[in-house]
Lab assay of single mutants.
Amino acid sequence: TGIVNVSSSLNVRSSASTSSKVIGSLSGNTKVTIVGEEGAFYKIEYKGSHGYVAKEYI
């Protein structure tokens, strides 16, 4: 489990790349469930599926 550490919002992406499609966003202080790691990204549970967020903001 981690907490989103941004002042505005954090993009949730379809894969572990900054060039991948943005599938949603999370507000600061949102609790997320981390299910894996891939490079500079965490794989998280997101809306019944999975998404990826940059580690530096969790």
Results as ranks from 00 to 15, higher is better:
residue 6 V to M: 09
residue 28 G to L: 13
residue 24 G to N: 02
residue 33 T to N: 12
residue 8 S to G: 15
residue 17 S to H: 09
residue 7 S to F: 08
residue 4 V to E: 03
residue 6 V to E: 06
residue 45 E to W: 10
residue 35 V to E: 04
residue 44 I to M: 01
residue 39 G to D: 07
residue 47 K to I: 07
residue 36 G to V: 03
residue 58 I to H: 02
residue 58 I to Y: 03
residue 57 Y to R: 05
residue 47 K to L: 14
residue 54 A to S: 10
residue 26 L to R: 01
residue 11 N to C: 12
residue 33 T to G: 04
residue 1 T to Q: 13
residue 16 A to M: 04
residue 29 N to T: 07
residue 41 F to Q: 02
residue 42 Y to Q: 01
residue 18 T to S: 11
residue 25 S to Y: 15
residue 35 V to K: 06
residue 56 E to F: 08
residue 30 T to L: 07
residue 25 S to K: 14
residue 45 E to L: 14
residue 10 L to W: 04
residue 54 A to K: 09
residue 4 V to C: 05
residue 47 K to Q: 13
residue 9 S to T: 13
residue 19 S to I: 09
residue 49 S to A: 13
residue 33 T to R: 11
residue 25 S to F: 15
residue 40 A to D: 15
residue 22 V to K: 07
residue 1 T to V: 15
residue 20 S to T: 04
residue 9 S to D: 11
residue 15 S to V: 06
residue 57 Y to G: 14
residue 12 V to I: 08
residue 31 K to I: 15
residue 57 Y to A: 13
residue 2 G to R: 04
residue 40 A to H: 11
residue 46 Y to K: 00
residue 4 V to T: 08
residue 46 Y to F: 14
residue 33 T to I: 14
residue 35 V to H: 05
residue 13 R to N: 14
residue 8 S to P: 12
residue 19 S to V: 13
residue 11 N to K: 13
residue 42 Y to N: 01
residue 55 K to V: 05
residue 17 S to Y: 07
residue 53 V to Q: 00
residue 23 I to F: 03
residue 20 S to E: 03
residue 51 G to D: 00
residue 23 I to K: 04
residue 58 I to G: 02
residue 20 S to K: 02
residue 4 V to R: 01
residue 51 G to W: 01
residue 39 G to V: 03
residue 32 V to H: 04
residue 12 V to S: 00
residue 26 L to T: 02
residue 3 I to S: 07
residue 6 V to C: 12
residue 31 K to Q: 13
residue 49 S to W: 06
residue 13 R to G: 06
residue 6 V to K: 09
residue 52 Y to F: 14
residue 24 G to S: 03
residue 43 K to E: 05
residue 52 Y to Q: 00
residue 54 A to C: 11
residue 57 Y to I: 04
residue 15 S to P: 01
residue 41 F to Y: 11
residue 54 A to D: 12
residue 20 S to H: 05
residue 36 G to C: 07
residue 43 K to G: 02
residue 15 S to F: 10
residue 19 S to K: 14
residue 40 A to K: 10
residue 41 F to V: 02
residue 12 V to H: 01
residue 1 T to K: 07
residue 57 Y to H: 12
residue 37 E to D: 08
residue 22 V to I: 14
residue 32 V to G: 00
residue 45 E to P: 05
residue 1 T to R: 05
residue 45 E to G: 05
residue 17 S to N: 13
residue 56 E to Q: 11
residue 40 A to N: 13
residue 40 A to V: 11
residue 53 V to I: 08
residue 50 H to I: 15
residue 38 E to R: 06
residue 43 K to S: 04
residue 54 A to L: 15
residue 52 Y to L: 01
residue 9 S to H: 15
residue 24 G to Y: 05
residue 23 I to T: 03
residue 36 G to K: 07
residue 52 Y to N: 00
residue 10 L to I: 15
residue 45 E to C: 10
residue 16 A to C: 05
residue 48 G to N: 10
residue 6 V to H: 13
residue 3 I to F: 15
residue 57 Y to S: 09
residue 51 G to A: 10
residue 43 K to T: 04
residue 30 T to D: 14
residue 42 Y to L: 06
residue 4 V to L: 06
residue 42 Y to I: 03
residue 21 K to R: 12
residue 36 G to S: 08
residue 54 A to P: 14
residue 14 S to G: 10
residue 28 G to T: 09
residue 25 S to W: 13
residue 45 E to I: 14
residue 30 T to Q: 12
residue 1 T to C: 11
residue 9 S to V: 13
residue 4 V to H: 05
residue 34 I to M: 04
residue 47 K to R: 13
residue 12 V to C: 02
residue 24 G to F: 08
residue 7 S to G: 13
residue 35 V to D: 03
residue 49 S to K: 12
residue 12 V to A: 01
residue 19 S to M: 12
residue 1 T to Y: 13
residue 36 G to P: 00
residue 5 N to D: 07
residue 41 F to L: 02
residue 8 S to M: 12
residue 34 I to Y: 02
residue 41 F to K: 01
residue 22 V to A: 06
residue 42 Y to M: 03
residue 56 E to A: 11
residue 19 S to P: 06
residue 44 I to N: 00
residue 30 T to F: 07
residue 47 K to M: 15
residue 54 A to M: 14
residue 55 K to F: 03
residue 44 I to C: 01
residue 33 T to P: 03
residue 5 N to P: 05
residue 27 S to I: 13
residue 36 G to T: 05
residue 34 I to W: 05
residue 51 G to M: 02
residue 25 S to Q: 15
residue 9 S to Y: 14
residue 43 K to R: 11
residue 55 K to Y: 02
residue 38 E to P: 01
residue 50 H to C: 08
residue 13 R to A: 06
residue 5 N to G: 06
residue 31 K to P: 11
residue 57 Y to C: 10
residue 10 L to G: 04
residue 58 I to Q: 02
residue 1 T to F: 14
residue 14 S to K: 12
residue 56 E to G: 07
residue 3 I to K: 06
residue 4 V to I: 09
residue 1 T to S: 12
residue 18 T to F: 15
residue 46 Y to S: 01
residue 4 V to M: 05
residue 9 S to I: 11
residue 8 S to E: 14
residue 16 A to T: 07
residue 30 T to V: 10
residue 2 G to C: 08
residue 2 G to Q: 06
residue 27 S to N: 13
residue 24 G to I: 03
residue 55 K to G: 02
residue 6 V to I: 13
residue 33 T to D: 07
residue 12 V to R: 00
residue 10 L to H: 04
residue 7 S to N: 10
residue 34 I to V: 06
residue 23 I to R: 03
